[in-house]
Nucleic acid binder design. Sequence first.
DNA 1: CTGAAAGCGCTAACAT
DNA 2: ATGTTAGCGCTTTCAG
Lengths: 335, 335
Amino acid sequence: MGQVTIRDVAKAARVSPATVSRVLNTSENVSSDLRERVLAAVQELGYHPNSQARSLRTRATTVLGVIISDITNPFFTSMVRGAEDVANKAGFSVVLANADEDLDKERRYLEVAAAEQMAGVLLSPASATETRVDVLIERGIPVVTIDRQLKTADIDRVTVNNHRAAKEATLHLVEQGCRRIGFIAGRLSTTTGAGRLAGHKAGLKEAGLPLDPELVVSGDFRIDGGREAARRLLKLEDRPDGMFASNNLMTIGAIDALDQSGVRFPDDIALVGFDDMMPSLVLRSTITTIGQPTYEIGQRATELLLRRVLGETFPSRHIVLPATLKVRDSSLRRA
Amino acid sequence: MGQVTIRDVAKAARVSPATVSRVLNTSENVSSDLRERVLAAVQELGYHPNSQARSLRTRATTVLGVIISDITNPFFTSMVRGAEDVANKAGFSVVLANADEDLDKERRYLEVAAAEQMAGVLLSPASATETRVDVLIERGIPVVTIDRQLKTADIDRVTVNNHRAAKEATLHLVEQGCRRIGFIAGRLSTTTGAGRLAGHKAGLKEAGLPLDPELVVSGDFRIDGGREAARRLLKLEDRPDGMFASNNLMTIGAIDALDQSGVRFPDDIALVGFDDMMPSLVLRSTITTIGQPTYEIGQRATELLLRRVLGETFPSRHIVLPATLKVRDSSLRRA
DNA sequence: CTGAAAGCGCTAACAT
DNA sequence: ATGTTAGCGCTTTCAG
């Protein structure tokens, strides 16, 4: 029951613990005779090194932490795949934590990452101004933010060009004849949420349309929030003729609200969403969305992170990947 | 840059490391004078205990591992929520790992969990017969399987009654007039995949219908697999009049295939899925599914796990939660 | 109530 | 090429 330690193996193989360690870690300076005895003992006893003891000694782990803001959001889960693939190839494992858009939970997990001495951390911060990564930085644990940026620290980040993409989507709706576009905003405390709203406003401005404050409703990046926001927009006296939901979950909520209210798209209202969605959902009537290269975001961020983990130093880098408008039926006016 | 250790705090507070430890861990036997000095020093220096060193010493952690077979599957992510809520309430953190239905990846993560001395592990095994949890058991780390069971170890598990639910769904399709039901099976190496197929067969038998082997196609629990399986079923000379996809992702794939082939449900074919799905997806035409209490599965499994973690011993337990058929439009024949 | 000292399992510097 | 020794940061006897 008690753990099998390196001493047990050493004893069984009639060598010193140091030799066992050498066999297991370096490939040098061990005679093949002893090496075999050690390996046999390891096998026999079912020895597995205790990684806590090891990393206490070496001050190094091969575990990367990924702290995401909503584990139920397919956007993030796809990104995680990209991260895992790159990490695994380099011999690192990836563990995830779900901060749930909650600053407290997030802080707890940042502390877990620090306490567990993780090699590096990928983070989609719950807030650009409130989230602090000092716990990690102080300990020399590199951090790369994904999807969102941090104003409290100058660190590597991988995002898409939210401003530009949102502007493009808004101009597309205008082109389709929309004059009153309801905008379902995400959490404005994130750079992503704020950037998309800013892009939308820029689009309106360029199109010479006024910004009616009642057309901007927050949906908190969640399905329920999107549904609620869409309902509120539909109740307006001067009902919008277009709707732009600024992430995937809120788009789903909006569609739900539209269905329940019997409002049809694109006939009654032109609809644009953000992020790619599950195939059937898009197929439903094929929904115009801004697609993001989620898998690649995870990959690139992890590549960056691993370079830091392996000791490279360079000025903090910002990788911006393209988000592109994919026009489908939901926003195309027949006219 | 170097880590702040308990010695630094001790020095700053002019006490011994032992006293710092006492302040931080037990609430006894420390004069309030020293206690304050210590707390102040902790604050000042930004000290965070090194959990590896701690658990190396105490042989105990407060981190639970959750190893799931597909992180992009909403079924699992919802379950994780339930697990987190229970764990957090008890002062435990939860980290996730994505085994991706891959035995190798799964084994690696089981080893990580062992090496990191996690307090306990929740696992949805990739295979009932190939997955081995000995690495954990040997070290006294309790394991509870979720959604699926293990034939290689007699341990706690939380599942739904797949057999019964699948049988019910099949009988429902028969009731709707279906005579040739295409069954999209999951990975038969899992108890879940096998159980649902068995339930389907039992349903056919009870209805007095023959089992045509060409009507059972494997979809591997994935969207692509489901799409492919549905396509194959639709190409059959004697086309099925009903279709039963035995998990959520395969249902999505199946819907996709149906759409692309111009086959409509329930008009051309009656459709039943497994697992609840995102609201909009269900609303699409409202799809008949077997709903599972995913959140509760996570909760109950974690409760069980924590009892083991805290040292309770009892015979291995099997909690079976109800999965219930929710009849909606997709399977209802007009006739 | 507080401190000194030992040791968790491991690796790395130093001997041999 | 191998063993001995020290020590990573922490907690926990054991003294005082």
